[in-house]
Design a protein around this nucleic acid. Structure first.
Length: 922
RNA sequence: GGGCGAUUAGCUCAGUGGGAGAGCGCUUCCCUCACACGGAAGAGGCCACUGGUUCGAUACCAGUAUCGCCCACCA
């Protein structure tokens, strides 16, 4: 059999593309419901269709692929459902930036042409991330690639919307929502990021309308909103203010008087003065208070968060004030108002105050509470079953520490604002009859809106349907206008586990793969995505969307900073794959993925695992080099010590890896593999069998080759989910049956391989050798020089045991350690003797500087008793027989605890040792 | 303000009611015919602090400190 010539250094680039394509061409990743195995399904967290693979994706998908490949090898019916997300605002922003660079704009293009343009961009760049995922080795069923705006998925979106609307779980209304004045759209509560910032707390005095001598002091962080105040609230049982409820105060800078109301929900008596200004159009609490007390709402700013003079006019603001702050941004208006309040003598004080300011999660612009008509999902009825599913363990969060997070959020969940005033996305399947809503549409143009910025009046009555109705069911008019808003991106993602499987059609895929098995995702989208999938899955499928949710950490840079382009600390996974190989990247990410902890990725770490790949590669080279001859399967009873040992260890590795994967402990599984392959398989096993392989024709060698191939091939299969490329490449070079390692069975525990006795024996053997080497190094014994390694043992048996030890260990000292005598004994016997107290001695020739060695020990003792203790522990069985000055020996004799004198020392000269070396172990 | 997590070798992190570990880095020696992306040996830690439980605590409990994350309408 001719073996391929392998390079000394593993070159990932040369193999990766080849196998990636090979796997796809062979259709290994394609799933079919007809497959007899137990279904195992993961739906991918769909990346932004126009995005590029970042290291977070790399982590997320590496972990998924490990699970998927592992389950596939186990014979399960595996489906990894891939797809991309249209990512409404994010994508729209990107295309808008492109337009800006071209000197045009979304508005100039108009809605239809803009959306067309985004589709073009999608067509152009949508394939990028898919190709990158393939490069990562992701074994998705690429034939099933989905996109959230596919016809099928859009149908699911409309279906869900209509059903929820018909059940009253979706409604439309004018509410205070989070508004991004830059993206010009509403956002949901969780799309607002709170950031601590320094602000001021302003105390303003409002005089009673009928008795200006009495003043109520209220505090606010946003004095500019006082122009829109509708009331002052006090606690109804507060003795200071109780009697004032029902009276009015004169609102400074305006011609309005506003009532004093009692409200126990809004007002905390203990806080501040106990009196609160109420601004229903600019504060979420105040909005609710306003509803409770039927207060007027005075909106002051326009959709760009600029002071709107016409609204100020409506709010009865003093014309001079309007003039001063008209069209100013909110932050610019604030100091003007502050000054005017001061001029009016009603600004009691200004203090420093820290506050949380909300920012848009897409563009970091400061958000503004904005009164506008929007669509909402009534979430509570959906949340309850979703809470139960997790409480009852039908869905498992891993690590489970996140459960409280999830439950806490779900229990306090608020209605979900799902309408967005952007163009890219699923347009809301609601239409308005222009005829029936004449009043509302009177003042408008073709867009069919009555208000600023394209809002359809909140009073207009929508017709909700999965497709455009031909006529108005009420008046038969065909003059229908579709609601201009689109749905929150996360609305369609919430349906992902069943929409991708064909819902609302009852497909075989849906039947086979729903509920899916596991979801692998980052914490950052637990609420955005995971929680909503659970709610929607339970609602529309009547069952949980997945059993396990594995929540992995965020990838940070080596300093623990979030990676961001602006900081320039981004590790580009594509670059890493290029430089170190995909397998190295995957293995690194897996090995660092401890639960509940962010992972700091440093390039050195990747380099380390690149070296690991190279180690595997060279082990393969070694093995292939020695395979040029017959080999036989070995009956367990005839296996050599080394064979029994490595199979037992391999067995342990298999058991551990599988157990860790079951628990999503990718880190421990990876570390087990690393430890096994490098420090057991390569460091010890391959070294142990080297001498045997030196005689290729021997029966011993034939048997050794049998186990060698078997153990290595098994190891490759064990490694494959983590390092798919290199394992496939090497597997093909090894003797094998089958077409690809991808479809080979995952190794399973072999009870016959387990041998605790052999492992115990090996442990002793290892100790002996380490002792020997330590002694050598400690005594500065020249590296090329043989160390006579002599042991006690008076009987023939002892002597023979020692010989066997030499046979097994001679090479381990890399030619510099030899054991005498030469008789052959099974190593186990030696080890048994060792266990019974036999001591191994190290004899030093006269040219060794014992004094120096001992001096080191003494010096270290002076420096710290602990170190010397450790040294003594190691040296306790080392014998010094060199011609050192007698006083030195005497001085340190007791501490060195030399060999017991009742044991004979087998001595050997250098000449004898050379004979042994060349005579070898046959 | 509430909740959660972290604190172990220079760095990144595992870990367990009884011996303190790994990778990388570092020191010494070695380019020995699988691998210098390698081999051998080694240095380096009051396991954050303070109490408690225990025969025994790095581990369990309480508190403190520092850091981080999530949530939050206290004007």
């Amino acid at each position: 059999m001719s073996l391929p010539q392998l390079d000394k250094i593993y070159n990932p680039q040369q193999v990766e593309d080849r196998w990636s394509q090979f796997w796809i061409d062979k259709g290994y990743f394609h799933a079919t419901p007809a497959h007899p195995g137990q279904p195992y399904c993961i739906v991918i967290p769909p990346p932004n269709v126009t995005g590029s693979l970042h290291v977070g994706h790399a982590l997320n998908n590496s972990l998924q692929d490990i699970l998927i490949r592992w389950r596939r090898m186990q014979g399960r019916n595996v489906l990894w459902m891939p797809g991309t997300d249209h990512a409404g605002i994010a994508t729209q922003n990107v295309v808008e930036r492109q337009l800006l660079a071209e000197g045009t704009s979304r508005e100039a293009l108009g809605r239809e042409r803009f959306v067309e343009r985004v589709w073009q961009w999608k067509a152009q760049s949508g394939d990028t991330i898919i190709q990158q995922l393939k490069r990562l080795g992701a074994s998705c069923d690429w034939e099933r690639l989905r996109f959230t705006m596919d016809e099928g998925l859009s149908k699911a979106v409309r279906e869900v919307f209509v059903r929820l609307f018909e059940e009253g779980l979706i409604y439309r209304g004018e509410r205070l929502i989070n508004w991004c004045p830059r993206c010009l759209t509403a956002l949901s509560d969780i799309e607002v990021e709170h950031e601590e910032s320094k602000g001021k707390l302003y105390s303003i005095e409002y005089p009673l309308a009928d008795d200006p001598s009495i003043r109520l002091t209220v505090a606010t962080t946003r004095p500019e909103t006082m122009l829109g105040d509708s009331a002052v609230a006090v606690h109804p049982e507060d003795p200071r203010y109780r009697h004032l409820i029902g009276r009015k105060v004169a609102l400074p800078l305006t011609n309005r008087t506003i009532p004093i109301v009692g409200d126990s929900i809004l007002v905390d008596r203990e806080f501040g003065t106990g009196a609160v200004k109420v601004t229903p159009a600019h504060d979420f609490n105040d909005f609710e208070a306003g509803q409770r007390h039927n207060l007027l709402r005075f909106s002051l700013f326009n959709h760009e968060a600029l002071v709107d003079p016409s609204k100020l006019d409506v709010a009865g603001v003093d014309p001079d004030v309007i003039h001063t702050i008209r069209l100013l941004p909110v932050t610019k208006a604030r100091p003007k108002i502050e000054q005017m309040l001061r001029d009016n003598g009603v600004l009691a004080k200004v203090e420093d105050h820290k506050m949380a300011v909300g920012k848009c999660y897409r563009c970091k612009t400061v958000m503004e509470p904005f009164l506008s008509p929007q669509w909402f999902v009534r979430i509570q009825p959906l949340a309850e079953p979703a809470i139960k599913a997790v409480e009852e363990g039908r869905i498992r969060l891993i690590p489970e520490g996140w459960m409280n997070n999830y439950l806490g959020w779900m229990r306090n969940i608020k209605d979900w604002c799902i309408s967005r005033q952007i163009w890219w996305g699923h347009q809301i399947p609601a239409w308005y009859c222009r005829h029936c809503n004449q009043e509302e549409f009177k003042t408008t143009g073709s867009q069919g809106t009555t208000r600023e910025f394209g809002f359809v009046s909140p009073v207009a009555k929508p017709i909700v349907a999965t497709s455009r109705p031909a006529t108005c069911p009420n008046c038969r008019s065909a003059d229908l206008v579709q609601d201009p808003d689109v749905l929150d991106t996360w609305f369609s993602s919430a349906l992902w586990p069943f929409s991708t499987l064909g819902w609302p059609e009852q497909t075989p895929e849906l039947k086979t793969f729903y509920p899916t098995s596991a979801l692998v995702t980052g914490l950052d989208i637990l609420f955005f995505w995971v929680a909503r999938m659970i709610m929607m899955g339970l609602k529309f499928m009547g069952d949980v969307p997945f059993r396990d949710v594995y929540i992995h950490a965020l990838v940070r840079d080596a300093e623990g900073q979030k990676m961001s382009k602006s900081k320039g600390n981004v590790i580009d996974p594509l670059h890493v794959m290029e430089q170190y190989g995909t397998d190295a990247l995957r293995f690194t990410l897996a090995s660092m993925s401890s639960p509940g902890r962010d992972l700091r990725l440093a390039e050195e770490r990747i380099e380390g695992y690149r070296n690991f790949a190279n180690k595997i590669w060279n082990a393969a080279r070694f093995i292939l080099m020695h395979l040029d001859g017959e080999r036989e399967a070995v009956p367990p009873t005839q296996r050599s010590f080394a064979d029994r040992w490595i199979l037992s260890r391999l067995n342990a590795a298999i058991t551990t890896v599988a157990a860790e994967l079951e628990q999503y402990r990718f880190d421990r599984a990876a570390n087990t593999l690393y430890q096994f392959v490098w420090h057991e398989y390569c460091d010890w096993y391959l070294e142990l069998i080297k001498p045997v392989l030196q005689e290729p024709a021997s029966a011993e060698a034939r048997r050794a080759r049998g186990t060698l191939v078997e153990s290595f091939e098994t190891t490759l299969r064990l490694l494959h989910p983590f390092m798919p490329y290199i394992t496939e490449e090497i597997w093909h070079a090894l003797p094998h049956a089958g077409v690809s390692i991808v479809t080979q069975p995952f190794p399973t525990m072999q009870p016959a391989w387990e041998s605790k006795e052999t492992e115990a024996a090996f442990a002793l053997l290892e100790q002996c050798l380490t002792l020997l080497r330590t002694g050598r190094a400690l005594l500065n014994y020249a590296p090329g020089k043989l160390v006579p390694f002599l042991t006690s043992g008076t009987t023939e048996q002892d002597r023979a045991t020692l010989g066997a030890l030499r046979a097994h260990l001679a090479h381990l000292g890399k030619g510099a350690v030899q054991v005498s005598p030469a008789e052959e004994w099974p190593a186990e016997n030696l080890l048994r003797l060792a266990a019974e107290g036999m001591t191994i001695g190290l004899t030093v020739e006269e040219d060794v500087d014992v004094q120096k060695a001992l001096g080191r020990i003494v010096k270290q003792k002076e420096e710290g008793a602990k170190e010397v203790q450790r040294l003594e522990g190691k040296l306790q069985s080392v014998e010094f027989t060199a011609k050192a000055p007698a006083d030195v020996i005497a001085d340190h004799h007791d501490r060195l605890k030399t060999l017991r004198r009742d044991q004979a020392i087998l001595h050997s000269s250098e000449t004898q040792l050379r004979e042994i070396l060349h005579g070898r172990h046959t």
